[in-house]
Design a protein around this nucleic acid. Structure first.
Lengths: 353, 353
DNA sequence: GTTTCCATTTAAAACGTTTTAAATTTTCTG
DNA sequence: CAGAAAATTTAAAACGTTTTAAATGGAAAC
């Protein structure tokens, strides 16, 4: 744990930090007012059977003593934590951090807090986090499945006891509410847009094969081709696994097999932009020689030259809706049903296609 | 809460989700093995006084019954939550989401979890979150102060009872451990780099005046000028408040007053890139006419044209170190002292300067 | 066959809250 | 002013865990 950065300490002030004076409890309030703890508890929770006068006195004393409720105790008694667990493959990533922002918003509007975990796409970390969150830490789970995850049995088993909403990276093996971007239609729109620019072959730089997201975008691409009587050619498809380092090679491979390619649809904006960089390095003009469409409308899309035409899929909205559903699951579980919400996509027409 | 997106539901499968079969407790394990709950508790915690044979039996039964410890109960008894609260102005932002990634890493290595809140730069939300986190939810706090925050008294009071580490957005009014980027030196390096390109005026697009981060970067800029016998000219300084919409106007203002400007140092990469876009729109060549240096080394820095010369300040590292210090504070509070760690910066030389 | 000692196990209390059921006080009715 | 009804408060138990202090049982020592 110790690193060389330890050398960068400078003492600012020569005193030591102290803390954790035992915080005030309900009993303390009761004692100092000469009333019972149950009355204090009820007063604090605005129970109708408590006299207004008493409530006022209790609240005042609570403030005076810096009282704040012990969540562990309250949670133990009520079986509610007012926390939601979030399990994502990666936090520092435009898509997921935006989703998290949306989740935070809705959670906080409803007085819930977010416990956020990052799986690094590892199946075992994912399982460990889910396990830990489910054990009395959270009232429900928001989850986006890691790339690596193969075995859904254990996960489904753990989750069968807990309200959970899956978002973006979903699996039908976990029967619950799913919130996804309109990946299929987005890809369809993107591909159709490329086709509409004129005759020529359209290639696809795909994502990890296992992910439903990639699969749906691939289907959208294929269906758009088919609808325009273009037969799908596997030589025009390369999978980059969300890894930008693989892009130049993938572009080379496609161009070698099909020098006449007129358009590329990439599974996301990062890949699309790497493709643009690779094409520019070859002095291929965009969009005149090859047009490029991405997916996601990342902030870079309007910076890269040419500005990237892409599909916007509103990640914050995905987070908001997923959280909305989870809260509904938690608080009205009677009405809960297995279903899927798809957040609409939109084509953002810029200069790259 | 209901939005039009509710229309996008399609039932997937016609059944309802059920959950929350009462989870197994220590008592259940004890009962099914015919031993006492205390023995079970100790066995699960690998207490040395428990026979190996007993431990094995307990662990097996725990697995069989899908037992997992109730954190609320355990936390209530031990006064430990193994959670760290994180309060940031914004989650979906390259800098903060990267910091969060670093925090998650160190926290998880030490079996801690992260409770993450977003203040949206609002003082009242900040106070509300801190209040709520501190009340028995977390063992300590990682915090980056919101822009709006004026009154540190209440905050300092609440935090005096809890281990807390401030990062990036710090304030000396809260005497504890601070972890910051080397803002002063980074700005100094950036400005010196611009000066070294040849004679000419160097402008600065500054951040929110209240933030120590902005202040330190401004100091670095000024000191680099002074060291090269260039007197600071307020007409070369414009504050954009981290708001990219204000950049074109700020650039115009500076250029109107000083058409002979040869370099611009921006408080962060986003601002720098907006400045580049604004300059390009005026057909000003970068870096030949005006050179630009940013701060942060965001992913866009290597995409924009020309590629942005910038200062890398390693956000994940900031998160890792802050968490490291907080865990130390929590677990060895005797050694705790008020101090500051500064994470080194580095100039990343690309094409814009 | 006691006694001592050691290794294990256990009963019971505690953490701070909420809540059921009962008790107390106040107000109303005639 | 008694008695009923209503309003308000309270005692005590419960949530699931950890932990102190005490108990149990068996082996070793005498």
């Amino acid at each position: 744990m110790e690193t060389s950065a330890d050398n960068f300490f400078f003492g600012l002030l020569p005193f030591t930090v102290y803390f954790r004076i035992m915080p005030a409890t309900i009993k303390d309030i009761a004692q100092s007012l000469g009333i019972s703890p149950s009355t204090v508890s009820r007063a604090l929770n605005d129970h109708p059977q408590i006299k207004d006068e008493t409530k006022k006195a209790v609240r005042e004393m609570a403030r005076k003593l810096h009282y704040s409720v012990n969540q562990a105790a309250s949670g133990l008694r009520t079986n509610k934590t007012f926390s939601l667990g979030v399990v994502v493959p990666q936090i520092s990533n435009y898509f997921f951090s935006s989703v998290l922002g949306g989740m935070q918003k809705v959670a906080s509007e409803n007085d819930y807090q977010l416990l956020i975990c990052q799986t690094n796409e590892k199946e075992d970390e994912e399982l460990r986090y889910v396990q830990s969150l489910v054990s009395g830490r959270v009232d429900g789970l928001l989850m986006s499945i890691s790339q690596e995850t193969q075995n859904f049995d254990r996960l489904a088993e753990i989750l069968s006891d807990t309200p959970v909403v899956l978002f973006d990276r979903t699996s039908e093996k976990i029967p619950t509410i799913h919130v996804e971007a309109e990946d299929y239609r987005g890809a369809y729109l993107a591909t159709r847009h490329l086709i509409s620019r004129g005759p020529g072959k359209i290639a696809h730089l795909g994502g990890p094969r296992k992910l439903t997201v990639s699969q749906n975008r691939l289907r959208g691409y294929k269906d758009a081709l088919e609808e325009n009587n273009i037969s799908f050619d596997p030589g025009l498809l390369a999978h980059c696994e969300f890894d930008i380092k693989k892009v130049p090679e993938a572009v080379d491979k496609i161009l070698a097999a099909h020098p006449e390619v007129k358009g590329i649809f990439a599974v996301n904006d990062e890949i699309a932009i790497e493709a643009i960089l690779a094409l520019k390095k070859k002095n291929i003009r965009i969009p005149e020689d090859i047009a490029v469409v991405g997916f996601g409308d990342y902030p870079i899309a309007r910076i890269v030259e040419p500005n990237l035409t892409t599909i916007s899929h509103y990640p914050a909205k995905i987070g908001e809706r997923a959280t909305h559903h989870l809260l509904k699951l938690i608080n009205h579980r009677e009405e809960a049903a297995v279903m899927k919400e798809v957040i609409p996509c939109e084509l953002i027409n810029r200069d790259s296609a």
